[in-house]
Amino acid sequence: MSQALSPPIRPEYDRALPPFVEAPVERTLPLPARLWQQGWLRRGLILLALALAWEALARWQDNDLLLPGFGATLAALADGLATGEILERTRISLTVLAQGYVLGVVLAFALTSLAVSTQVGRDLLSTLTAMFNPLPAIALLPLALLWFGLGQGSLIFVLVHAVLWPLALNTYAGFQGVPDSLRMTGRNYGLEGLAYVGQILVPAALPAILSGLKIGWAFAWRTLIAAELVFGASSGRGGLGWYIFQNRNELYTDRVFAGLLLVIAIGLLVETVVFATLERVTIRRWGQVR
């Protein structure tokens, strides 16, 4: 600083601070404010508002064939649950889904493990995901039918396709984002191969992996319902999609809505119960996401 500071220059001072003894300020919030802080309550209110709007629209339309109300849909759903038909359909769908999902996850992990360890694996992964990720799983269904026939084989094939690519892509991106200091630490402690992937890469990349699992689940669920709509029952054992399609053909619109409602409900359940729990006990507790 070459230029002199012009007056006025204020005097300096030192001050002896007394010890700070005040208690932290805290008071209870009023009940409505506390209730409003409950996430489930806010979301429940949104759902309730949607249901009311739906019911109102249906009553105004007054045409059960085109738009049955919320009440009628619930009644059809209760009816389906009571006879056990809709439960059986759901069970069929979920069984197939689980098989395809698990197979897809296993393949995705195999592919990414290969990709982190070898150059060829990296090239293979990037080429395959670039080719197949944009390809809608349902577009492979005709081919799958040709190869595997009308049955679970075809469904599992398209499910694997739906899960594998997004999950592999996410997992690989997560692995690449693992900080160098952590990799160095792992190498320093002599972790190699599967121990290295399992103890260093997977925990550090878990946010990306979980989001890949979520995307994979959503893709798989929607692909499955769509696939069932297209070719439906094999040997009289159709899933939830087939239930929807069949009832539309017979103009049981309320049951169509009941089926759709169940598809949504299962999606919500998996998202808010399974994945939310998984996140809570892992990445949230570890502080990787807030």
Binding site: S181, L182, G190
Partner: peptide, 16 residues
């Protein structure tokens, strides 16, 4: 490596 202590700037604790 297990007999030599090694501390780096990035810390590198296992988050989980």
């Amino acid at each position: 490596r297990r007999r030599i202590g090694y501390v780096i700037q990035g810390v590198g604790l296992f988050p989980h």
